[in-house]
Design a protein around this nucleic acid. Structure first.
Lengths: 152, 152
DNA sequence: GAGTATCCTAGTATTCCGGTGGGTTTCAAG
DNA sequence: CTTGAAACCCACCGGAATACTAGGATACTC
């Protein structure tokens, strides 16, 4: 279960946008250097975000990107779905479209539970939470324990 | 965040092994047909499971595979790690090895929380839970809600 | 119309993924 | 000690995805 570079970059760029919210549109290159993301690559990512209505763009001199909605209303899940599609899928298909036979039958419910727990984090944290460093209580609790930081 | 075919197949094969625990070793081909997994592909997967001590093998006539430990002591996380490595990683590296700058700094804790929540499911469910259909309470609760089954 | 910045299309190198094939070794049974 | 059954090993393979890069067209401001 990997988080792709696209997803990671997208969230970081979006966070940067949320941070400089008042200052008018932000150029893609400014985002790229602020977060050490390859400029050309980021352009494509921002394009995805725009197509999904996460971000609005302004062309020409003085142009750049802004969030389409207030940062309190954009979740990390929104951003990731815009660039990578569904949050969790098994062998290319959504969990709920799977069918298992015999001893593996209950496995379906495990994947659904897994997805639910992934959502619990990614749909709860907004860009505003990121920039103010005010993560939701549930998320904060998850990170508190020592073992959460161990690499198993 | 995709569950690979390897991981899915591995868990299903392991579940099948757990189900036929008493009956002596099970042939790879029997596992393959029971779970509709390409036989040759499964061979490689079982090889990984053996290398990681999840499974023991017996060659020759009457041979096959058995679980190396009781099914109550093998978690789904164990199986997945044997075939796919770390459960969750970001852009190729573990969350705890990442560094973020500026507005994206708190993102690190989000990834750690995500991993913690993934573990909460995969390290809690054992192969025994699967075959007896007795999923842990926490997992059962996650699956109960309607929205867990929605595709968002 | 000069300059700036997004937008679009295409290309590319590398890696991963899912799967095959051929042959070798180990073992049990006859 | 042969025969057959099974795991084992190694190499390969096509296609897709990843992570980028290049070049220009388009839109906007001043």
């Amino acid at each position: 279960m990997r988080i792709s570079a696209r997803a990671d970059y997208a969230v970081r760029a979006a966070a940067e946008l949320a941070a400089s919210d008042q200052d008018g549109p932000v150029r893609a290159e400014a985002l790229a250097t602020a977060q050490s993301i390859p400029y050309r690559f980021l352009e494509g990512i921002l394009s995805d975000l725009r197509r999904d209505g996460i971000v609005v763009s302004q062309r020409g001199a003085g142009g750049g990107y802004r969030l389409a909605r207030p940062a309190t209303q954009v979740t990390i899940a929104d951003v990731i779905r815009a660039v990578d599609g569904p949050l969790v899928f098994v062998r290319g298909t959504r969990p709920s479209d799977l069918e298992y036979q015999g001893a593996a039958a209950p496995l379906l419910r495990v994947w659904v539970a897994l997805r639910a727990n992934v959502r619990m984090v990614l749909e709860e944290v907004t860009l505003a939470d990121l920039v103010t460093d005010g993560l939701p209580e549930q998320v904060r609790l998850l990170v508190q324990s020592e073992e959460a930081w161990e690499n198993a």
